[in-house]
């Protein structure tokens, strides 16, 4: 588990429109990498291209390569379904399946991979919910619908659902933007714990959050509207926030634009 990701000369398109231009970025295993940048700079698009969720949008495609421990996830013989099973994702808005119970939500991904005994499912669900710091809150009502939880709990349920299938990488697309400060803190603490076992990539609009949770930070920027987004620089988080090497980064992190 916990693999590294190397994006090489990655161009991401919507139809013929180039949204993100030639990104080269290495993501270290067992670390948190934050993607920051102004709206529309392509950081979410880039994140979604790391588990091939990008191509869900009709006409969307990429060229270049994304390697997971040396294997190109865009190679011809690679099935996007396998990629997404290996690289989990947590979305901006908590999206538990409304028709499923809390328990069924957690094991939804596992059930896809073939039959397992009830006790095995119970064990994994408990493990995942514990790992998501949610077990104590829901252990007595696992059969209630997932939508009965609060927003922060729903988001942790989604994290539990994502890690129940033991992905190698966990992608988080602004996971706290729809949550209140207390839930946000809970998720941030959780990210701190999860990085012991997972490679985590997180998109965030909140620079304090990037500074708090991440080890490395990548700054994306947009030269002008209608132009593709670009990766400006990537470095240790402390360096990006104290002494970035590019002027634009400094302007952004110090709040002069964006």
């Amino acid at each position: 588990m916990a693999k590294r990701i190397d994006a090489r000369d990655l161009n991401i398109y919507y139809g013929s429109f180039l949204a993100v231009e030639s990104v080269c970025l290495s993501i270290e295993p067992r670390s948190v990498t934050a993607l920051i940048g102004p709206s529309g700079c392509g950081k979410s698009t880039f994140l979604r291209s790391l588990n091939r969720m990008h191509e869900v949008v009709p006409g969307a495609h990429v060229d270049g390569s994304v390697e997971l421990d040396g294997q190109d996830i865009y190679a011809d013989n690679v099935d996007p379904v396998t990629v997404r099973r290996t690289i989990g994702m947590v979305f901006q808005r908590p999206n538990p399946f409304p028709t499923m119970s809390i328990f069924d939500n957690v094991v939804a991904g596992l059930k896809l991979q073939g039959h397992r005994s009830k006790s095995e499912l119970n064990e994994i669900a408990e493990g995942a919910l514990r790992a998501a710091n949610l077990w104590n809150e829901v252990k007595d009502r696992l059969d209630k619908p997932g939508s009965s939880l609060s927003g922060g709990q729903q988001q942790r349920l989604c994290i539990a659902r994502a890690i129940a299938i033991r992905p190698d990488v966990l992608l988080m697309d602004e996971p706290c933007s729809a949550l209140d400060p207390i839930s946000t803190m809970a998720i941030e603490e959780l990210i701190e714990e999860l990085k012991r076992d997972y490679t985590i990539v997180i998109v965030t609009h909140n620079m304090q959050q990037a500074a708090r949770v991440s080890d490395r930070t990548a700054f994306f920027n947009l030269v002008a509207t209608g132009k593709p987004g670009q990766l400006v620089e990537v470095d240790r988080t402390a360096k990006i926030f104290s002494n970035p090497s590019v002027r634009a980064t400094e302007d952004y992190v110090s709040g002069r634009f964006g």
Partner: peptide, 20 residues
């Protein structure tokens, strides 16, 4: 976490290769 790691041998075995 221990529970998860105990279980994961089976899942991880088929996740080592992406190529299918």
């Amino acid at each position: 976490m221990a529970l998860l790691q105990a279980d994961s041998s089976r899942t991880r075995a088929n996740a080592t290769s992406l190529a299918s």
